[in-house]
Every structure is written in structure tokens, then in C-alpha cells.
Computed example of a mutant assay.
Amino acid sequence: MTVELEADKCVASGQCVVAAMQVFDQDDDGIAVLLADRIGPELVDDVREAVAVCPAAAIRLVER
């Protein structure tokens, strides 16, 4: 699975970090950054939660 983040849409809420801290972090301005764009099955549920709670709809989970 691949995680896609549109950082220019990010509103710095930090919800992705709360949901999936192994995959997301925030820069000094609070904008989300990807720590890993490819994830294993053990992180899929966490990333799906991050996708669901992102207020800007800036995250996608893509099967590749």
C-alpha cells in the first residue's frame, strides 16, 4: 500500500499524527509530512483512520 499526502492542502490539525504516528509527522509550521509512503499491512488500519479524520482530505491510501 502507498500513502499519498497533498501537503499544500494540509491545515495543520495534526489528526494524522495522532492516528498514525509511525507514518506521519509535522514540520515546524504544523504541516503534515510523510515518514513512509509505503506501508505494510500492520499500519493500514491506522492510515485509514488518518484518511478518515483529515479535515482537509489531504491523505489517500492507494493499493499498488
Rank of each mutant, 00 (worst) to 15 (best):
I31D: 11
V33N: 04
M21R: 06
V11R: 00
V17M: 00
M1A: 09
V3Q: 08
L5V: 08
E42D: 10
V44P: 00
I59Y: 07
V33H: 03
I39D: 13
L34K: 10
V53R: 02
D25L: 02
E4W: 03
Q15N: 04
I39Q: 11
L5T: 05
Q15T: 02
A36P: 01
L5G: 05
C10P: 11
E42K: 13
D29Q: 05
D37M: 06
E63V: 13
A12Q: 08
M21P: 14
V11D: 02
G40K: 07
D37F: 06
V3L: 10
Q26R: 01
L35V: 07
V17A: 01
F24Y: 07
L61P: 14
C10Q: 04
C10T: 04
P41H: 13
M21S: 12
S13K: 00
C10W: 03
A32K: 08
G40M: 09
A52E: 13
D27A: 01
C54G: 07
F24E: 00
A57D: 15
A56D: 07
A19L: 07
D28Y: 01
T2W: 07
I39S: 12
V3A: 09
G14Y: 02
A20T: 05
A57I: 14
V3S: 11
V51N: 10
A50D: 07
E6A: 11
F24Q: 03
L35H: 12
A56R: 03
V33Y: 02
Q26C: 00
A36G: 08
D8G: 06
L35D: 08
V3E: 10
V3N: 11
C54T: 11
Q22S: 05
A57C: 12
